[in-house]
């Protein structure tokens, strides 16, 4: 089962914390919009660092 990070846009405060810990550069803060790219493997580092708990790992 493939995993990936999913962002709750209503919770995200686009602070960039998740970008700083992503080993695959899968997260990108496009001004005030967090983009999670296809290469995300759902390792969960970004979910742990998110100050708001706006990121979760889902099976796809």
């Amino acid at each position: 089962m493939k995993k990936r990070a999913v962002v709750d846009r209503k919770k995200c405060a686009y602070c960039g914390a998740c970008v700083a810990v992503c080993n695959l550069d899968a997260n990108e803060l496009v001004e005030t919009y967090l983009e999670i790219k296809e290469n995300c493997t759902g390792c969960g580092a970004c979910a742990k660092v998110c100050p708001l708990g706006a990121l979760s790992i889902e099976e796809v």
Binding site: G16, A17, A20, V21, N23
Partner: peptide
């Protein structure tokens, strides 16, 4: 900033651990 794209693209810094 902390999410520096440039630094990692250039290989100057590595991704921060938790």
């Amino acid at each position: 900033g902390v999410e520096s794209k440039l630094g990692r693209m250039a290989g100057i810094i590595r991704t921060l651990k938790l």
